[in-house]
Every structure is written in structure tokens, then in C-alpha cells.
Write a protein that binds this DNA or RNA. Structure first.
Length: 934
RNA sequence: GCCCAGAUGGCGGAAUUGGUAGACGCGCUGGUCUCAAACACCAGUGGAUUUACUUCCAUGCCGGUUCGAUUCCGGCUCUGGGUACCA
């Protein structure tokens, strides 16, 4: 029987579609399970063979869970807003919506061919107004909220206004940009504008002047996770630091909860570690250093209050507000010159340039513990954005301070006994304190505790926890994103669009570039003002400061739309709310999330934050969005090279290339098989090589190879469509899983795919003799039962443990055994079909129907295995004890003669070696005793 | 620099967590089929040693615990990832 995978796959895909077999609804009688993939950004290049890896794994898990009686939600959609479509629009003038729709169509075609069990009726697209309605809604809810540290949750902003009018800021413990202090009386006499500006200091979505990553080439600001080594993640353009007025999300308010939540979720340790580091909790003390002259004081943060006696100077960040407070008139020229040079450095220059620089302010501060006067310096090694933007420098025990002190000849003293600081600082947190007044004789650990207490007792500061996590910058000066539902009133104050007027739809523009005035592209939209009286979008030309007001021109960043999409799938068509309580209470949260590790500090943090906020406002019922998370590894490309002799059109085979002066050239991997080049295909691949000559080894041209990123320019892209055309989707699915552990990154190598393809053919062959169905209802033999029960147990165990590669191996072994046994019994083949259905659903469905079933194999019942069938026929050789009998070796009834002899041998040996001792275990291997455990 | 993960044949990788190391697949070698090739099927395939039975050596390196270590502990060396003047 021929394996006609094309016909089989088309037939059953049509069957599944027609019957909507993958559509799910809430069913209280069945346990739910939610399996989610990270939805793709539909790029113009389409899918390559690496993209579906995670989707295949999650699809297998989905199908497995379904066969085990779960009601599984397994949706898919598109992260449709993004820079590439907009960059393309700038070049071609084509509307990004059009490009995006085209790309989505292509993605869908490719995905459909692989045979996924997605419920497409729940599809979402982030650029769809019915979808971003809820992105805008969530933003407004954040705008209307502040964060209360006391209650550990977000609360309505009206509550805060209320408190201000009754008691001012007294006793407040809330998240804010800047600590403010005022009384109720002071608040009550403030103007509306003043009040609004103060409230902005507390809103969870706020407009603030912050240091941003500005990328001139992209014409937009970027979030911290979108900047890698001082270059933009997209395109690799330089990024500068500058202060801009931007929308921000007060994610820092959730730092502690984001950290604590990690202990409650089942993610890999390495991923949790990345998030922990990104959040960057550090415990320490905030201390006040009064200025030697005047009544000013500097606030600093330190994790080493124990080294207070070793402080010999202070350093301010160049951008710090303290600079103006401390700079001395005599030093002003030098200081300003220094600030200017720092300002002109890009982020990247500041990072790569490790040269020590700084300037003395001319002022002194007083050490609050020793009373000593110490100089105040400015240097760019201190960051404005962390702590208070100022530090106490302890050169003896901090390597950065040490380098600075050496460079500027500042005193360095040791406060830890026996620490050698002649050539470098002693940074370690161990040793006994010395030269440290009240701390002398204590260990560093005890000294930290005592110093903290002293700081609190003497009221020179307070114990403080600092986080590295910064608020997320939420504005982008771009077109292709969600518009902010915000307009600016006559006083220039940002005001929310009423909830019932959402969604605020993205307008068309004539060009996707900033305006002449430097406004973002939305500045070009003629209908982009707000008619407050009528509650709708109006024409910019009509703005009269009475009823028609300008709308916000920025758009939201990529992570806005991806932060809550998993909730929308639960109730994708609801026009009245993000998700109904009914749907949310049933599906709750994602049980298994499959996706790339590269989102660890971006999407996966934002989503958790967004989810916790929605939880706080009681829009949803779970505090964490993703219970379990698996990171599939990346599939890299495996490039092939040919070696061209310099200046000639002659190519040398790999192992002979060292005899010549050659240049390696990437060659299309699709014309190379097992590293052997197809010479004719090579000649016709590129006209330049039409007359190419070759120097062969053993009559073959062997190519070199390297593992690189899969990309067009390296000619190493393998398209899933081509694989499906040649081998079928089931083979592709099986092979992608067989490649290696799901979490590991590995290169794609098409060699080897025949290996798994063969086993699908072999499986099909079990059902037929020639072209005739040969299925029988005979009683299976013990060997057959053992083979198939072993498989049921193994595949079940492996899927639960996400070990898909070993599942495939187990399947192959079983098929081989059954082939050898010429097994054609229904009782054997039926469970085989069911357990392979998650991996190769098309062939399984075909065989399921061949066996005479009317229903879909997707609705089958996962078979149970029988331990009795798995009993080993070899010597199990248990040793038992009961007082007098020192040991006995038990042999199963069905042991062969050889095995019996072997057991006797073991018995004899054991008797000799034991000599009265009690053995714990005897390990017997064929023909010899390996070990006796005493 | 700091944090995390990993290192097993020619290659991808197994080893149900302390008990026959190298499952399964690729590749390679030999054979069957074929005029021939491809496909398919059968056999072999870590290294050394031996005619053979056998024996010895092998899980990055050095040491330790154990009757027994790829697995546990200590110290190195590489490789990959995260982060980076975070005070």
C-alpha cells in the first residue's frame, strides 16, 4: 500500500474543518485545559521550518490532553502591529493594514498545511478595532488608578483625591514618581490644573518627563528591553538618552509582586532567574549626607551601610538634580564643560568607553556617622535612574569607586581587617570590621544589620529596598499602533475619551512619516481631534478650544496588544467587556504557554504586570497569567559552503581546500545533500557558476558547514511548505520533534527526515498485505501486547514530561517490533493509532477510519496500559530474606533455560560473596553477575 | 565582571535520576534486489587488543564520596544564554 500523504492530509483537513472538530465552548462537565502559543508577528518572509517547532509541540500536548478527556482551549491569532509593516509602508506607500492582511493570509495557508488543532473561531488580531478596544480600555483603567503599597493593589484614583482633600499626603504609602508632601488645606486650594498635575504623579498610566531611549533612525523612543547593547533591537540603530515627555506604565509599583509571583508558577529556573535579575531587588539603606555649607543634603542609596567609615568622597550622576545644588561658582565652568561632554555621548559610547572621567563640584558633604567632611564629585559611572542618582563612595570596598579614587588621587581606606587594598578593592561581603567605630569586631553580615539599625535609630536615613525594574515607556512616535484614547483640553491637560466611545480608531494618513512640525505621523490625520460635545472624532481644522480638542498623536508600543491577548481568546467576540466573568471563570488562566525565551524581559514581564492590574480591578480571576511555561529552543540554520579558488571559477572540495588560496561562499542548502553538492544544480543555480570547474575528492564535492541564523542571505532557509510537499505534514511534525529536546536550540538538518518518514510508511504497511486490508480480530500474543503497552506507557510519560523526541523513538521501536511480529491485529493496532494521533494526526485519522470507525480519532479515548503485559521475561532476580534463609533468587515462571542457569550462577556467586552479610540488591546481567550490593 | 545552563561516537541525541553507557535516527561499510542508479530490505558500526573466545580503555579535565558515578561533592577548562558601571 502506497503512503499517499498528500491525498490523506487534504482529505482529513477538510473533514476536520467541515465538522469544526477543534471548536470548543465552555463545558462545565469537563475539566478545562488551556494551551497557548505565543502568537506570531506576520512578517513578509513567511514561516520557515523553525517557526512551527513550538506550535507542533503544543499541538501534540493539546491533542493528548483532549484524548484524555479535557476540554482544551487552543487558539491562535496575530500580533499584527509592528515596525516592519510600517517601514515597508514608508518605502512603498502601501497601507500597513494591507501588507499585514496579506502576510496573515500567507501565514494562515502555511499553518493550515501542518494540521494544527487551533480553534480559529477565536482568532484575534491586535490591529482589529474590536480587539484594541480592550487595549485602550485597559490603558484608561490604568490612567484612572494608583497603586497602594499598603493594600498591595491598584485602586481608583478618586480614592486618592479623596484622601488628599481630607488629610493631604500624611501617612501615605503609595507608588509615585516623586515623593510629595502637602496638607489637606494646601490641596484644597490648588487649581484644577495643579491638582491634575499632582495626580499624574500617582497614576499607573502617566505622562511624565523621563529619560528615554531615543532612536533617531527609527524616529521613536524604545523600551529598555528593545535596546540591546545600546542599539535598537529592530534594525540595530544607535540609541541616545534624552529627556522627553512620554506616556509610561508604573510597572515598578508591581516589582515586589512580580518577584513573589515567580515562586508560584511552573517556569524553568533559568527563565525565572532572568526575570529576577531584571527586576533586580536589592536591600540596603537610604542615608542623608548634609552639605558642609548651607542646609542642603544629599540622599544616597547603599547596600553596604557597614562601610560607612570607609567613605572618602561622594559621586553624583551628571543628570542628577543635586548637581545644581552642589556646584560651586569657582568650579562652574569645569562642571558645565564636563556635563556637555557627557551629554554628547550616545548610550553606546557611554557603555563601551570605560575611561574614567569626572569633575569636582567644589562642595563638601558631611558623613552623618563620623562627621567627617568629604568632597562631592560628578561622574557618569553613577546613573541618574537608579537609587537616588547619588552615591557614597567607598573605594576600599567597591571596585568602581576604587578605580575612580586611583584616577583622581582620592584617599582609599580599608574598614575590613586584613583586606589587601594596595592594588584592588576588597568587594567581598566577608571579614571582620575594622577602623569602624561602633561596628568594629563585627562580621560584615552583622555590621550591615547593625548599621541599618543605627541609621534608623539616629534618623539619618531609613532601610530601603530598591529595584532595577523601571517604568515602561508606553509612547511610540509611530503610525502603526493603537491610538491613545486621550485628548488634551483647553488647559493642555490630558483627558480620557469616555469608555462608551471606545474604540478610538486609527485614522488614515497620507504619509507614514513625522509631520514638518516634527509631530508623529498621526499629526497628518485630518480627522484627528475630539469633539467633546458630540463624543466623536472631529476634524483637526475645527479645533476651537471650546468643544473640539487635539487628540494624542503618539501610538502604543508593540507590547500593548500582546499583554492580554490570552484573555481575549476566552471570549473573542464579546463587544461589551474584555472577557465575561463566565468565560473567565471557566478558562481562568493559561495552563501551558509555549514560546521563546527571548521574551523573558519583555512580553512575559509586561503580561504579568498587565494581568495583575486586571486582577486588582477585578476584571479577571487569576493573579498570574501563565501557570506553566515551556521555552522551545530556536532552530538555527545549517549553512553549506563551497570553496572558490581566488580569482578563478574553480571550486575545491572541503578536505582539499587547504592546498589552495580559497574563499568560502554560502551555497543554497537545498542543492546539497549530506554535505555533497549537486554539481549540475550548482551550475544552474547562479549564472555566474555556469562554467564552474570542480576539484573533487573520491568523485564527490564535499561542502563545509556552519550553524548560523536562518536567513535568506545565507541561503540556508528551509521552507515547511517544501518539506510538506515532499514528505507530508505528519513526517514534518514527527521529524521536528525527533530533532532533539524541545527546549534546546539546534540546527535544522534535512538529512534524516527520510528516517522518520519510513516509519510512517511501515506503520501504514501493518494494515495491509499488498493493497488489501489485512486487519484481523485475532487474540494478540504476549509479545505484541508487551510491545504496544510499553509504547502507551512511554508516550504518555514522555508527553507529560515534554520529552517529544524520545516519544518518537519509542514509536519507531514499536513499529519495528510489530513489523517483525507481522502484527495485523485490531487489538494491537487500535491503541497504536491513538497514541500516534497527537504526532501524526492525518495518518492516524486515515487508519482510524480504515479500521471502520465513524467518529474522528480526535474524539477517541487514550488507551491505558497494563502493567502485567510489561512483565520482563528475563531474570528479574529478586533476593528475599527471612531469618534463616539468607537469600533466595526468584525466577519468573516463564524464564528460559538459559535464564534459569544464569540465576543459579548468580545464586552460587552470591552465596560465596555474601558470607552472612545482608545484601540490599543483586544486579544480574546476561551471563555474569555485575554487582552484589551489601 | 556577575548570574544561569551545558559538555556523552563521524553527526542529532538516549540512559525512567546512583545500577548492563551509547537507545532511536542520520551517516558510513558490506550484502540482497536491479543492466545500472535511486528506493527498499538484511547485517555490521565508540576505541584499543585478539584469528577467535576474551580483556582493557572510554560520558570536557583533575580529585573526592560509594561495592558501583554520565548522574552526587570540591576545584579547573571550554561552550551557549542573560545582564552589565544597579552602588
Amino acid at each position: 500500500m502506497e503512503y499517499n500523504f498528500r491525498a490523506i492530509e487534504q482529505k482529513w483537513q477538510a473533514y476536520w474543518n467541515a465538522r469544526k472538530i477543534y471548536h470548543v465552548t465552555e463545558n462545565p462537565n469537563k475539566p478545562k485545559y488551556y494551551v497557548l502559543d505565543m502568537f506570531p508577528y506576520p512578517s513578509g518572509a513567511g514561516l520557515h521550518v523553525g517557526h512551527p517547532l513550538g506550535y507542533i509541540a503544543s499541538d501534540i500536548y493539546t491533542r493528548y490532553k483532549r484524548l484524555n478527556g479535557f476540554n482544551v482551549l487552543h487558539p491562535m491569532g496575530y500580533d499584527a502591529y509592528g515596525l516592519p509593516a510600517e517601514q515597508y509602508a514608508i518605502q512603498t506607500g502601501q497601507h500597513p493594514a494591507l501588507t499585514t492582511a496579506q502576510n496573515i493570509r500567507r501565514y494562515r495557508e502555511q499553518l493550515d498545511k501542518i494540521g494544527f488543532s487551533f480553534d480559529w473561531e477565536r482568532e484575534v488580531r491586535t490591529c482589529d478595532p474590536n480587539y484594541y478596544h480592550w487595549t485602550q480600555w485597559a490603558f484608561l483603567r490604568m490612567f484612572n488608578s494608583y497603586y497602594c503599597y499598603q493594600a498591595q493593589q491598584a485602586r481608583p484614583i478618586e480614592e486618592l483625591e479623596n484622601v488628599f482633600s481630607l488629610q493631604g499626603t500624611r501617612g501615605m504609602n503609595v507608588a509615585c514618581t516623586e515623593e510629595l508632601a502637602f496638607t489637606a488645606e494646601e490641596w484644597n486650594v490648588k487649581t484644577e490644573t495643579e491638582k491634575q498635575n499632582i495626580l499624574m504623579n500617582y497614576r499607573l498610566a502617566y505622562l511624565g518627563d523621563t529619560m528615554v531611549n531615543w532612536c533617531p533612525a527609527l524616529g521613536t523612543v524604545l523600551a529598555n528591553d528593545e535596546v540591546i547593547n545600546g542599539l535598537s533591537e529592530r534594525g540595530g540603530y544607535p540609541v541616545e538618552q534624552k529627556i522627553m515627555r512620554q506616556w509610561c506604565l508604573r510597572i515598578s509599583a508591581y516589582a515586589q509582586r512580580l518577584l513573589d509571583g515567580l515562586d508560584k508558577i511552573d517556569w524553568t529556573e533559568s527563565l525565572k532567574e532572568i526575570q529576577r535579575n531584571w527586576i533586580g531587588r536589592s536591600e540596603g539603606a537610604e542615608m542623608q549626607f548634609p552639605l558642609a555649607t548651607g542646609n542642603g543634603k544629599l540622599l544616597i542609596f547603599t547596600t553596604r551601610p557597614d562601610t560607612i567609615y570607609g567613605v572618602t568622597f561622594m559621586v553624583l550622576a551628571p543628570e542628577s538634580d543635586y548637581v545644581q545644588l552642589t556646584v560651586n561658582d569657582i568650579r562652574r565652568t569645569e562642571v558645565e564643560a564636563y556635563l556637555e561632554t557627557v551629554k554628547n555621548k550616545t548610550e553606546r559610547e557611554r557603555m563601551t568607553d570605560k575611561k574614567i572621567s569626572g569633575v569636582f563640584t567644589g562642595s563638601y558633604a558631611v558623613n552623618p556617622v563620623t562627621g567627617q567632611e568629604i568632597p562631592i564629585w560628578i561622574s557618569d559611572y553613577v546613573l541618574a535612574g537608579y537609587g537616588t542618582g547619588a552615591i557614597m563612595a567607598v573605594p576600599g570596598h567597591d571596585s568602581r569607586d576604587y578605580a575612580f579614587a586611583k584616577h583622581f588621587n582620592l584617599p582609599i581606606i580599608s574598614v575590613i581587617e586584613g583586606a589587601d587594598i594596595s592594588t584592588e578593592s576588597f568587594d567581598a561581603k566577608d571579614g571582620i570590621m575594622a577602623n569602624s567605630g561602633i561596628l568594629n569586631g563585627l562580621t560584615v553580615k552583622d555590621a550591615i544589620a547593625k548599621a541599618k539599625k543605627h541609621v534608623e535609630d539616629e534618623k539619618i536615613g531609613r532601610i530601603k529596598v530598591n529595584y532595577r525594574l523601571r517604568d515602561a515607556i508606553f509612547s511610540r512616535q509611530r503610525y502603526w499602533g493603537e491610538p491613545f484614547p486621550i485628548y488634551y483640553d483647553a488647559d493642555g491637560l490630558p483627558r480620557p475619551i469616555p469608555f462608551d466611545k471606545l474604540p478610538l480608531e486609527l485614522p488614515d494618513v497620507d504619509k507614514y512619516l513625522p509631520t514638518e512640525a516634527g509631530d508623529p505621523p498621526l499629526g497628518r490625520a485630518s480627522h484627528w481631534a475630539w469633539n467633546r460635545a458630540e463624543g466623536k472624532v472631529a476634524d483637526v481644522a475645527e479645533i476651537d478650544n471650546q468643544t473640539i480638542f487635539p487628540l494624542e498623536l503618539n501610538t502604543m508600543p508593540g507590547f500593548a496588544g500582546s499583554s492580554a491577548y490570552y484573555l481575549r481568546y476566552m471570549d473573542a467576540h464579546n463587544t461589551g467587556e474584555l472577557v465575561s466573568p463566565k468565560a473567565n471563570n471557566y478558562w481562568r488562566s493559561v495552563d501551558l504557554y509555549m514560546g521563546g525565551k527571548e521574551h523573558a524581559t519583555g512580553h512575559l514581564i509586561y503580561s504579568r504586570f498587565w494581568n495583575k492590574f486586571l486582577f486588582d480591578i477585578e476584571a479577571i480571576c487569576e493573579d498570574e497569567p501563565f501557570k506553566k511555561l515551556i521555552n522551545q529552543g530556536m532552530i538555527q540554520g545549517r549553512s553549506n559552503f563551497v570553496y572558490r579558488i581566488n580569482g578563478e571559477n574553480t571550486f575545491v572540495s572541503l578536505n582539499l581546500k587547504d592546498n589552495y588560496e580559497t574563499t568560502p561562499l554560502n551555497v543554497d542548502v537545498n542543492i546539497v545533500s549530506n554535505d555533497i553538492l549537486d554539481l549540475d544544480a550548482f551550475r544552474s543555480w547562479n549564472p555566474e557558476y555556469r562554467n564552474a570547474e570542480f576539484i573533487l575528492e573520491n568523485g564527490k564535492y564535499i561542502c563545509g558547514y556552519a550553524v548560523e541564523k536562518m536567513s535568506k542571505s545565507k541561503y540556508n532557509v528551509v521552507n515547511p511548505d517544501d518539506m510538506i510537499e515532499k514528505y507530508g505534514a505528519d513526517t514534518l511534525r514527527l521529524y521536528e520533534m525527533f530533532l532533539g529536546p524541545i527546549e534546546q536550540s539546534k540546527p535544522w538538518d534535512t538529512n534524516g527526515i527520510d528516517g522518520v518518514h519510513r516509519f510512517l510508511k511501515k506503520m501504514l504497511a501493518l494494515f495491509y498485505t499488498g493493497d488489501h486490508l489485512s486487519l484481523t480480530t485475532d487474540e494478540p500474543s504476549a509479545a505484541e501486547l508487551k510491545s504496544v503497552h510499553k509504547l502507551i506507557k512511554k508516550i504518555g510519560y514522555d508527553i507529560e514530561h515534554f520529552s517529544f523526541n524520545t516519544s518518537v523513538s519509542a514509536f519507531m521501536i514499536c513499529v519495528n517490533e510489530l513489523t517483525a511480529l507481522k502484527s495485523n491485529k485490531r487489538a494491537i493496532l487500535e491503541p497504536l493509532v491513538i497514541v500516534i494521533a497527537p504526532f501524526a494526526p492525518h495518518l492516524a485519522e486515515e487508519l482510524w477510519h480504515v479500521m471502520g470507525n465513524d467518529s474522528s480519532v480526535c474524539d477517541a479515548q487514550w488507551p491505558t496500559f497494563n502493567e502485567a503485559c510489561l512483565a520482563e521475561a528475563t531474570v528479574t532476580c529478586a533476593v528475599s530474606f527471612n531469618g534463616k534463609t539468607r537469600f533466595a533468587i526468584e525466577i519468573p515462571a516463564n524464564a528460559t533455560t538459559a535464564e534459569t542457569e544464569q540465576a543459579a550462577l548468580a545464586h552460587e556467586q552470591a552465596a560465596k560473596w555474601l558470607d552472612g552479610k545482608t545484601p540490599r540488591k543483586i544486579i544480574v546481567v546476561p551471563n555474569k553477575i555485575v554487582n552484589i550490593v551489601i
